[in-house]
Amino acid sequence: MTTVPELDPVIHAQARLRVVASLAALSQGDRMAFPRVQQLLDMTAGNLSTHLRKLEDAGYVEVTKTHERRTPVTYLALTRRGRTAFEDYAAALRTLLTTDGSETAR
């Protein structure tokens, strides 16, 4: 009876889960500048870049490079696919919680 849902390996790593969760907290159609995301995650730029590459490769995060007042700015946003993947992941976690008797919600 009890089926253990498959957990998406791309956002399974704790750091990437935090990146995706942060971007999912934005309104749909919004994007956030790289330094702001970095500050909200307390990550180094290098560390964040590494995780972003994996998320971008999976088609979950869209990275836009642009210029504002001649300064280069990088914006990050969750793609539709990334948002769906995050919602599925959270749903899978909740299923695991309810199907596994030894776990209790928070």
């Binding site: 704790q14 935090r18 942060s22 928070r106």
Partner: peptide, 20 residues
């Protein structure tokens, strides 16, 4: 592969989204 329980992962999501 991970070291977080589902409850811990959900708490992490909630905490991070709350901060944003």
């Amino acid at each position: 592969g991970g070291d977080l329980s589902p409850a811990e992962s959900l708490a992490l999501i909630e905490q991070q989204q709350g901060r944003v």
